[in-house]
Design a protein around this nucleic acid. Sequence first.
DNA 1: CGAGTGACCCTAT
DNA 2: AATAGGGCCACTC
Length: 112
Amino acid sequence: MDDARDAVKSAILAAIRTIPRGQVRGYGEVARLAGLPGRARLVARILSENDDAALPWHRVLRSDGRIAFPERSKGYLEQSRRLKAEGVKVESGRVRGIRAAPTEDEALWGPR
DNA sequence: CGAGTGACCCTAT
DNA sequence: AATAGGGCCACTC
């Protein structure tokens, strides 16, 4: 059974739903909020598999505030459009006004 | 079980 | 600011 996997998916989706309108979060941030530190990639995969139209997936970006899609991609345009519609400023494929707390990630990824 | 891939992240140059 | 290198996780072949 994929109970565990389903639970993880639900947790991630819930975390994404927690993002307030007009604001954005990073994949790693979402993963951490979902109780899955270091599984940012998993979040991305879940999003690719997700089919919930009510899910604000467009509020999920990379840590740099960059959209995780190539500019020519359809998803990029869609996400950019939706973000702008919510009052988020997007320039050159990157969002302004965000700062995904890197300090926490540093503790986890920062190996040194 | 090894190798390849991806809507990722970090450090260093 | 942009590029290069290394790492971690989950899935597929």
